[in-house]
Every structure is written in structure tokens, then in C-alpha cells.
């Protein structure tokens, strides 16, 4: 009997996660278009539904009804598998994300590790898609994606290690529990390391690079490589790539929220005599989503502000700035932990 409820629970979560990922992808596209439009002082989608809110639906229908073209000479299997390779790990990563204290599909002790493991698969999708499409632009893009991977993953992991050292756990829910109010958020935990805000910035920059978002979208670089690895994709093949990209953005932002911004905790903390009806103090999914979407907003905002970096620009940034600073932060944190704990 207990087994069945567990199975049902997992199933419900699975459906929920897929729906959440799909909905997010759809509405982040909408947000992106609206936000870009307003930054550029346009209106953006407005014809389909109020404020163009049904636009993602229309886009979805359009993508789904389009023909899937496999270019001549393409490796059919790789070509078809590639989009899934981006989307599937992203969806799998959602399993360990705590949306609130109780709302988490699987509270795994090594949650952080699992997300990073899945995130590394991301680059495989681009590589295989680029390689499989038998297009020179796509191959260049694939090569770029792989070398980009080398550049940003190191500082990102170093920063993550720093966080794990401070938190003493890899369980995401426990990390969140340690940040009950805004002064205890890790971004402001100056007692652990005075460089925490910088660490957050490094983490944020790296997650931009990891999700191939501007200004690090060299792999997609529409003015150089047409659409990079996605050049040959049409219809839903392209759609799935897109969903995967946005799902990855959500994962990256969730992780930043959990590690630095207190996850589902309310920034005001829980006063001893808190009235639970007071939403402001009540920790939960709402706070998580607010923080998450603020970060997503920033990701989009960055994209519509800057030009694209050049390849060696990212390498320079990574090796000259991000890696030394994050390493320094790691050492500093280690030293401070030693001093303050003993």
C-alpha cells in the first residue's frame, strides 16, 4: 500500500515537473519578447489574447504543425536525439529543486551534485545536434559550445564547492533552511566570506554561459553562424531545443536562488509571534517563484543590453578573472571557516 502512494506521488510530481518546465519555457519566451520589446520601446506580442498572453500557444501550434526536415547527409539518429538530450536532463534536474519546504519531488542528499551532473549533459545536445546536421555553421557552433564548456564550468564548480563548504551539505533543501531571512542569505553572509556577492555574480555569469545565453551565445551567434547548431532544425525539433534552453535558464536561476538568495524562505524571516496568514512572513513557493522570475528577468535583461562576447573574450574573462577570483574566494572561505569555527 505504501509503495503505491509513493509511486502515485512520483507520477504526480513527474507530470507536474514536465508541465512546469513546458509552461515555463512557453511563458519565458513570452516574457522575453515582451521585455525585449519594452526595453526597445515597442509593445511586443499583443494580438493573441490579452497582452499577447496566448502567443506562446499560437507559437506552439505553429511549431508543431510544421514539417520536420532532416537535411540530406545528416546523421538521422543523432539529429533527432539531440533536442531531447537538451530537454531531458533539464527536466530531470527539476526533481531535486525544492519549491517549498515540502514541495520537492525527491529530496536527494547529493542534489547539488546531481544538477551539475545533468547540466554537463547540456553541451552534448548542442554537440550532437551540430555534428549530426551536416552543416558547416552547425559544426563550428558545436565546436564553440564544447570549448565554451571548458571555460565556464571550472569557476562555476569552484563557486559551488565554496557554497558547499559554507553550508556543509549538498542537500538543496537543507541549504535553503540555513537562510531563514535576508541577513542570513548566503549572498550577504559576510562572516563566511566578504566576497559572497562576488561569488554570486560569478555564479550568475557562469550560468549565463552554461545556458548559452547572451552575451555568451557564441554557439548560437545569429549574426555569425546563422543559428549555430540549430540552423537545420525546423518545427518541433527546434521547439524542443528552445524548451530545453529555457528549462536550463530556469534551472540555473533556481540554483542561484537556492544557493544565494534563500530559496523559498521569506526575506523577512519568521518572527516568533508570526501570524501565519501574513503572506510576507510566510515562507513558501511564492517567494521561490518571485526570486526565480526576478533572476529570469535579469537574464533576459542582460541579453537585450549587451553585444556578444568574442570567443577569446570569454576565455580571458574566465581564466583571468573568474577562476582566480573564485579560487581566492574558496581559500578565503576555508580560512574564515577555520578561524570562526575553532
Amino acid at each position: 500500500m505504501g509503495n503505491y502512494t509513493e509511486l502515485l506521488r512520483l507520477l504526480a510530481y513527474l507530470v507536474g515537473i514536465i508541465a512546469f518546465a513546458a509552461l515555463n519555457a512557453a511563458y519565458l519566451v513570452w516574457l522575453e519578447r515582451k521585455e525585449a520589446a519594452h526595453i526597445q520601446r515597442r509593445i511586443g506580442p499583443k494580438e493573441v489574447g490579452p497582452y499577447g498572453l496566448l502567443q506562446p500557444l499560437a507559437d506552439g501550434i505553429k511549431l508543431m504543425t510544421k514539417q520536420l526536415i532532416v537535411p540530406a547527409g545528416a546523421d538521422v539518429i543523432l539529429f533527432k536525439v539531440a533536442p531531447l538530450l537538451i530537454l531531458a536532463p533539464a527536466i530531470a534536474s527539476f526533481v531535486t529543486i525544492p519549491f517549498s519546504e515540502t514541495l520537492v519531488a525527491r529530496n536527494i542528499n547529493l542534489g547539488l551534485l546531481m544538477i551539475f551532473a545533468f547540466a554537463s549533459l547540456n553541451v552534448m545536445g548542442v554537440l550532437i545536434g551540430g555534428w549530426g546536421s551536416n552543416n558547416k555553421y552547425a559544426v563550428i557552433s558545436a565546436a564553440r559550445a564544447v570549448s565554451q564548456n571548458v571555460a565556464y564550468e571550472i569557476p562555476m564548480l569552484i563557486t559551488a564547492i565554496t557554497m558547499v563548504m559554507v553550508a556543509g551539505t549538498m542537500n538543496l533543501n537543507e541549504i535553503v533552511m540555513q537562510q531563514p531571512n535576508i541577513f542570513k542569505w548566503y549572498i550577504f553572509r559576510f562572516t563566511a566570506s566578504p566576497l559572497m556577492p562576488v561569488a554570486f555574480l560569478i555564479f550568475f555569469i557562469c550560468s549565463l554561459a552554461e545556458t548559452n545565453r547572451a552575451p555568451f551565445d557564441m554557439a548560437e551567434a545569429e549574426s555569425e553562424l546563422v543559428a549555430g547548431a540549430y540552423t537545420e532544425y525546423s518545427g518541433m525539433g527546434f521547439g524542443v531545443f528552445f524548451m530545453g534552453e529555457y528549462a536550463n535558464v530556469v534551472i540555473g536561476c533556481s540554483l542561484a536562488t537556492i544557493l544565494f538568495l534563500g530559496g523559498w524562505q521569506s526575506p523577512f524571516g519568521v518572527p516568533a509571534d508570526a501570524h501565519w496568514s501574513l503572506f510576507l512572513f510566510k515562507p513558501g513557493i511564492l517567494w521561490f517563484l518571485i526570486k526565480l522570475y526576478l533572476l529570469c528577468f535579469t537574464v533576459i535583461w542582460v541579453r537585450w543590453t549587451y553585444p556578444r562576447t568574442q570567443f577569446y573574450g570569454l576565455l580571458n574573462l574566465s581564466w583571468k578573472y573568474l577562476i582566480p577570483i573564485s579560487l581566492f574566494n574558496l581559500l578565503l572561505t576555508g580560512a574564515m571557516l577555520k578561524v570562526f569555527q575553532s
Partner: peptide, 8 residues
């Protein structure tokens, strides 16, 4: 500019 009125 995000908060400024649209010009189109």
C-alpha cells in the same frame, strides 16, 4: 528605457 512609454 524599459519603464519609458513605447514609441511605436
Amino acid at each position: 528605457y524599459f519603464f519609458e512609454p513605447v514609441v511605436t
